[in-house]
Write a protein that binds this DNA or RNA. Structure first.
Lengths: 194, 194, 194, 194
DNA sequence: AATGAATGAGGGTTCATTCAT
DNA sequence: TATGAATGAACCCTCATTCAT
């Protein structure tokens, strides 16, 4: 890859990070190209040098965030340990995202009328893949006899939903410490699986 | 209350129902005053006779749906039966709303992005009250010895999160029938509580 | 037709006339919704109350002008007189448009990338119809023995082209008087046909 | 002239040829600097090394095509043959340009809308000169007794108008072959002059 | 109580143009 | 010479909102 290509990729990523900030603050619809550009100290028009249109930019935001989280989970999934141990790590990671990068991670929620028809498929694929990582750890636990699950898909959805919901109510200043939270969640999730 | 006032209230409710239909179809941002009016066979301008502005209309949509759901839950809560039986009914009701009303029931939506500052507080209050109904049934189960819960708040959040998440992936045409879904969810939720 | 519908039609036509003025001054691309609106002492957005989009407005401009000219020719065509007499009138009318309403009539030229696929067909139809009026008078002359034409289509195109070209060079202040012009053109056109 | 200057001139001409291709495909407004540059495997910015701005480039396109056509006509005009023979050749040449080069040769276009004030005069001069070549062949025919024309200017305008109009309706795929077209046009034009 | 009509702010997008490198 | 990157003006279009009738 040529230097110039690398440079452009870097800039694209910077823009994406800015965009993610704005999108999480305003929502997909509320985010304007103007504000995203301003965050980068650029003008609206310049964004179109890097992205075809708003839809494309939004899509890539979603993709980036999802890809980051996905990668972390994949590493944990391939690590050592019992299914329970791995799952605990994954839960911690997911909650970490939800709580620490709150806004960013919020993007896992709701694409819908934001994406072009040709983008929707990849988005759904990514999401499916992300979810499947939890399927895998569940499956692993079942095969080792650690877990007993009759409806693995349902259980996975319960787990994901419960965790994603955290962003709605968790406040860093609240009564519950983050670590405590992870513990409790992991505990109940394990309970669900045993 | 005068007759004319009653008539206005009735009309307001009709508009709300139309608006709910549109919002559920297009989302809060996607819903236009034009389309909502068209659904009522009115013109845009007329809506402003009944509602201060779009924000107000959207807010009342959310409120109405939430109030309806709340009422249903309250009736179930005051009905006969064991805590488990009641909870099963409540789960079914909640899932029904989440799946059927989708957008207007959407409790995952950040209220800050959708509603005016003066509306946010009432919304949060309603949501809090709604959530408390689940606290009550859990508490009842604990007091009767049906449930054993060490962290009732955490468990309630898991339950609500799991159920709210359903709208993200449930499709009426999908593999899972709604009734089946309710069954499974109830099962796992009970498991969490025992 | 209700009064309100009549009123809206009238307004539409007024807008069209303004738009025609602007379009003839700036060309299809050069004409902006802003300037058209300003000509009407309206704001941009109001135009969209009457027309779906710019393409629609442009299309209707073209249609209106063409329809006006068409009607005049049709009346002449159905009048009394020999083919030659009728043709002379038609030539005079066409040249009148070209010279007097210069800019407006200029619209007969060039649609191309201005119209939506669904509009192109009607446009072509209208143009074809307009041209066919000249075909008819030629045919009439041939059938009465006044004219002798082996390639009526070619001749018609020569006639139309020659007349449309007038707008490019005719200036009211120029050496040639308009009436003289019509005479000469008619003379040569008749010569072509005999 | 230095070598480097020659090189620049060559490049300029190459760019013009590319630009002509694009303009003929998209029209003056539709042609973008981006697409013209792409056709040359260059980037937008580079064009500005060779041309002051888009207007300049468009102007030179028109000029180049007009100059080429002019030269061809001049050669034909100075060649052997009767006035009729020469005129037939000139008609064929003109029609060729009108059909093949379409937009850039388009003499129907209002120069005012396309070109800068300082470019308009040269354009009009070129066009006038181009037209005069037809005057010359008519004059020649009159002086040799081949033609009998009472209003040579009018006739020349009819001829030019008829031919320029061709681009408005001629389609390569249409019913009429180009060669046939030339024949017919020449025939009728001669008829006009005899 | 309702409407028709207009408004105006703002958003997405395009593109000629510039300029440091 | 050429390019990459950025700019900014202009344009089309949408839509919540207003207000006289």
């Amino acid at each position: 890859m040529k230097l110039s290509e690398k440079k452009i990729l870097k800039k694209k990523e910077q823009i994406l990070l800015s965009a993610i900030t704005i999108v999480n603050r305003r929502g997909y619809d509320g985010a304007t190209m103007e504000e995203i550009a301003a965050e980068m100290l650029m003008t609206k028009g310049s964004l179109y040098y890097y992205f075809k249109n708003k839809g494309d930019l939004m899509y890539q935001c979603h993709k980036l965030v999802l890809a980051q989280a996905t990668q972390e989970l994949e590493e944990e999934l391939q690590g050592e340990g019992t299914a329970e141990e791995i799952l605990r790590k994954m839960v911690a990671t997911h909650i970490n995202y939800a709580v620490e990068e709150k806004e960013t991670f919020n993007m896992i929620i709701e694409p819908k009328q934001m994406f072009n028809p040709e983008q929707i498929e990849p988005v759904l694929k990514l999401r499916k893949h992300y979810a499947s990582l939890f399927d895998q750890v569940i499956e692993k636990g079942v095969s080792t006899g650690e877990f007993h699950v009759e409806e693995p898909i349902i259980v996975r959805m319960i787990i994901l939903g419960a965790m994603n919901w955290i962003q709605q109510w968790y406040r860093a200043t609240g009564r519950l410490a983050k670590e405590e939270l992870k513990q409790h969640f992991a505990e109940y999730i394990i309970k669900l699986l045993k």
